[in-house]
Simulated assay, not measured.
Amino acid sequence: MTANPNGCRICGLDERGHAQRWSKSVGWHKWTPPTQAQIKRRMQDRRTARLFAEPPKYHATTRYTGSAGDPDDEGYAVCADCGTDACPQYQRIQTRLAISLTDPTAPRSAGSWGGNPSWPF
């Protein structure tokens, strides 16, 4: 994780909640504003980290396991992020999509997403 661009000049922590901090280079110190060069470097580092980060996984995309060149092998649908059909998040989304496609008047309450009520989401 990269330092906040407007974090402390010495340790990179935010001003709020910084108070007194210990650093090997200077010992105890108060929050000190960063230099313009530090702000620029931290922003560049944060951008570089975003460019090379793994894309987020939403478990909402479908991938099919069938052979690409064989029209007779349709395969079956799996979660494109984790590659399994047992993904609870993927199943919940697919169930909700199926309900909304078959019954557009289905209730949209918080508990109507279908699936197992013991799931943590």
Rank of each mutant, 00 (worst) to 15 (best):
M1S: 13
M1C: 03
M1E: 05
N4Q: 09
P5F: 02
N6K: 01
G7Q: 01
C8P: 08
R9K: 06
I10H: 05
C11E: 00
C11Q: 01
E15P: 00
E15Y: 03
E15W: 00
E15G: 15
E15V: 03
R16E: 10
R16F: 03
R16M: 01
H18Y: 10
H18C: 11
A19R: 15
Q20T: 14
Q20K: 12
S23E: 10
S23D: 15
V26P: 02
V26R: 08
W28K: 08
W28N: 02
W28C: 02
W31Y: 15
W31T: 03
P33E: 00
T35M: 02
T35W: 00
A37K: 13
K40Q: 12
K40L: 14
K40F: 07
M43G: 11
Q44N: 05
R46F: 03
R47Y: 08
T48F: 05
A49K: 05
A49V: 07
A49F: 04
L51D: 13
F52E: 03
A53N: 10
E54W: 06
E54F: 06
E54G: 01
K57F: 00
K57T: 06
H59F: 08
A60D: 15
A60H: 13
A60E: 13
T61C: 07
T62H: 06
T62A: 14
T62N: 05
T62V: 14
R63C: 08
T65V: 09
G66S: 04
A68Y: 11
A68S: 12
D70F: 11
P71A: 09
P71S: 14
E74R: 10
E74Q: 12
E74L: 15
E74K: 13
Y76D: 00
Y76Q: 03
A77W: 00
C79L: 07
A80P: 01
A80L: 02
P88C: 03
P88F: 06
Y90M: 00
Y90N: 01
Y90E: 02
R92W: 03
I93V: 12
Q94C: 15
Q94M: 15
Q94T: 10
Q94N: 06
T95L: 14
T95E: 11
A98Y: 07
I99R: 02
I99G: 00
I99P: 01
S100L: 15
L101I: 10
T102R: 12
T105V: 02
T105C: 08
A106S: 12
P107N: 05
A110D: 13
A110Y: 04
W113D: 05
W113N: 04
W113Q: 02
G115N: 07
P117W: 14
P117S: 09
P120R: 13
F121S: 01
